[in-house]
Write a protein that binds this DNA or RNA. Structure first.
Lengths: 350, 350
DNA sequence: TTGAAAGCGATACCAC
DNA sequence: GTGGTATCGCTTTCAA
């Protein structure tokens, strides 16, 4: 029956009151150097570790931040290799701030987020909830510090971390145009086009694409938008459609997984990349450099996204009112091997 | 100053004692159906949510399970796309059991795991700590339910979930031998060979490789082991060495990332896959099917690994003493396009 | 600079 | 079946 040693045991052993021990632990109040040292020694000797639930009951905090990722099939965390890096960035930053990270996949529609209040979470990082998501008002209603990643929410009150998707897409498109491509298919994912505005990330990329077209005096043609799932399979499937589109010599996919599927699909159709078709992706997944041919893509530093988001969140928790409510991270075009001049292929495709 | 509504408020509103409310909430004690309904109604009306830290203080639990992933550089979660699926499986299972998942990257050497006691974690899932890891005794010393994933620890006391690595490697090697390959290079990662036994996963795979060799009456040659980092770059780098090894016509990499790097490196050397060299990977990453050529590899269901691990852990937490201390998941060889007959190339390589 | 004591919001024992 | 109350381990006034 050797009970866990608590603050009282430390106090007893040190011959001081528990209040003093508490002060030492928290570095608060006035404690003489001598008392402090003695208490610290006893703590080390006894191997005392604080009981956090008790502390949290008293302080009404939890030293916990939640990372919320919407699930696809109810119950299944979204299937995106991308998120691991994000999480790694968050976790790293949280740990530096003596916080821990709690990960939850939630059903965007149904979830009430009750656990946030129940567990007294100190803050929330919400990944990929668009403007239309019911999650957004619910999170706001909680009154808990929160940061949204990749959300493009209109409310200026909300803290957000996003990528400069528009510039990234612009660069990608301009690159293709510069190579002589005139009709560029777009793989946006399987969002209905009219809902695109609610998924800011995709919409911004669409805008970037249009920007570049416009700059070059090229028309924006709605029928170049291919609506297929954001997955390897979706991209693969898209190849058929791309090949059927007259005069199209290039495609821009809003994710690397789609781009990779597309390249594979195109090859399966007897088309060569980049000879017959140029392909650009988005994300710069760790594998994108190692596909054959290596994928030209728009790079984003996902780890940094996670780091920035926690930093922002912790700032808000500690009441350091950060005026910058929305942080935009840079996107960079990385030209590799899936893009080339439109020349040769053009002649044949026409 | 509208304070959070607590159990007392519910009790007051329902005209019962807090003890009764507590009983209703926890489904314990004897409560009449009528009282129960009334209390439940009041709870719903008031929107009462329990204060978990308080409950946890009292119960000395936390409804939290920790997932521990050793980091490479101290502070950085290991860089493996693989882990997201694992985590997704764990999270899903935990949620079903009303638990939450807390994720921590730790420095294997230094970390004391103090947070486990401090937060009163109910259980721990430790990923990839080998037999030699200081983590293992530390976790055992905590006296907290724990499950080790991919660890191959000798102690029969410890709960483990592993893949049938040996069979998987055997199948891969036998496949190559069946195709006529006689000298098969091995990309094990950058572990010193003498330490391999301490990293069970790799060691088991090595054993599987030897099994297959032996069955075929082929010699095991130590100089076919290439020691390079488990990464795309490592695999790429390995290509030079593989190409320099006389009579080698195939390589087996202990991870898909290495295999992918290797294929790329080989091609860069002017070698064709599978014409000049056959390559087999391990893991069946989601991209492996979409590389060109598609990677022949040993497949494991990582999501299932996570699911199985939590199930095992929760069983242990709830005291349902599961007799199976070690669960072995099946591995399956998936033959795709990076492997082919040794014939033609053999002639030239000699 | 230190200590006594009042909670924080639950759970659970024991009496009724 | 129901209710009073001690208790969990800590933080935090307020006095000394």
């Amino acid at each position: 029956m050797n009970h866990e040693i608590g603050i009282v045991d430390v106090a007893k052993a040190a011959g001081v009151s528990i209040a003093t021990v508490s002060n030492v632990i928290n570095g608060k109040g006035r404690v003489s150097g001598e008392t402090r040292r003695k208490v610290e020694r006893i703590i080390a000797e006894l191997g005392y570790t604080p009981n956090l639930p008790a502390r949290h009951l008293k302080t009404n905090r939890s030293d916990l931040i939640g990372v919320v990722v919407p699930t696809m099939q109810p119950g299944r965390l979204q299937d995106n290799p991308f998120y691991w890096d994000l999480l790694a960035g968050v976790e790293e930053g949280a740990r530096d701030g003596r916080y821990h990270v709690i990960l939850t996949g939630i059903d965007e529609e149904r979830e009430t987020l009750a656990f946030v209040k129940e567990r007294r979470l100190d803050g929330l990082i919400v990944v990929g909830a668009g403007e239309g998501s019911p999650l957004v008002p619910r999170v706001a209603a909680l009154g808990v510090p929160a940061v949204f990643i990749d959300s493009y929410l209109r409310s200026p009150e909300l803290n957000q971390v996003v990528l400069d998707d528009r510039s990234g897409a612009h660069a990608a498109t301009a690159h293709l145009i510069g190579l002589g491509h005139r009709r560029i298919a777009l793989l946006t994912g399987d969002m209905p086009p009219e809902q695109l505005p609610y998924f800011g990330v995709l919409y911004e990329r669409l805008l970037g694409y249009r920007d570049a077209l416009e700059e070059a005096g090229l028309p924006y043609e709605g029928d170049l938008l291919l609506r297929l799932p954001t997955s390897l399979e979706g991209g693969f499937e898209a190849a058929r459609h791309v090949a059927a589109l007259p005069d199209v010599t290039a495609a821009f996919a809003f994710s690397d997984v789609m781009a990779m599927g597309l390249v594979k699909g195109l090859r399966e159709q007897g088309k060569r990349v980049p000879h017959d078709y140029s392909v650009v992706g988005f994300d710069n997944l760790f594998v994108s450099e190692y596909t054959a041919p290596a994928l030209t893509t728009v790079s984003q530093d996902i780890l940094a996204k996670g780091r920035v988001a926690v930093r922002m969140l912790l700032g808000q928790i500690d009441g350091v009112g950060d005026p910058a409510r929305r942080i935009v991270l840079p996107a960079e075009l990385i030209v590799r091997e899936t893009t080339g001049p439109a020349g040769a292929a053009n002649a044949r495709n026409n």
